[in-house]
Nucleic acid binder design. Sequence first.
DNA 1: CGACTTTGACCGGCGC
DNA 2: GCGCCGGTCAAAGTCG
Length: 324
Amino acid sequence: MAGKEKGDPEFTFESSWGFGHRGSDDVVNHGYFFGSDYKESSMLSEFGWDIPAESSGVCGCDGGFVDLDRIEPDLGGSRADDCVSADSLAPRCEGISRSSIEPMVADASASASNPSISSSSSENPPEKSTVSDISPSSAAAAAASPPSDIASKTKKKGQKRIRQQSFAFVTKSEIDNLEDGYRWRKYGQKAVKNSPFPRSYYRCTHSKCMVKKRIERSSEDPSVVITTYEGKHCHYSAGYPRGMNQDAAFARYLSTLSNSHLHNTRPSYTQGNYLGITQLPPHIQGKDIGDQSHDIVQGTTSSQSQLDGQGLLGDIVPHEMRNR
DNA sequence: CGACTTTGACCGGCGC
DNA sequence: GCGCCGGTCAAAGTCG
């Protein structure tokens, strides 16, 4: 696997908080969101990418790019800690940009109404570490209860896998493992049917965080890496520079994709060719993303042509999003 | 020695 | 019921 860069200073200051690739020499040319029925700001919030609304132009709200000067002051200090208590997590996990999340909450409810998902999510079965209800309450519960992996050793039967909302990043890169500011532990790798490329499974290393991600390369276009995130981080990122959290990091990443539109950009951001982001709709969640990857890439391609000539904003903000 | 990856085995869901 | 396949476990190996 190309990505096993053990010697790579994975979480050094310089390389740890970009949304680019570890040590990649690739260069981002343009990154952009492609159309989606979801508001990316909400989507990202839902997944823990809590980008302030006023600076969320990059996320599909009003035009303009993230102004880091407006974001970072908001982050510093209290948010710098990587490991936060369940109590302190609550506001973040639960109420981030309430208004902007609403659509996502509704969507989540829709997902929950899906028989294949609802039963498990509502019952919150004692599924081992794969239980990924990362609500504040569950986070607190997790903190108060024994490590779930203890139970995991005994439980293997009669447990339903719970699917969290997920979304995929499609990135053009030679590097599989995109760095996103979190620490991940690989727990599996599987060959994917009809694809020459294996799919890798990662879990957030944070003890209370059940977020998972899958990484695979598109069989359609080997240069495209599909990173699917599932669940919400209930902690601040690990590996960001002091005073910076995932929001700022992600905002920086996105904004950097605009190519020099921002100050404070770092070389490490310009390491991949970000193609898009999409939330996997309920009916797709839980299905093989390999199938979707085709759609995603296709959508990206078509979007690309639409975005051509639309300038920097067009690089990352879907047209429809700009007319909000 | 701890953290992490590798990898074969196992399990559950799903389609036939 | 059976087989396929995706997802996960967990022991062993690797690395710093």
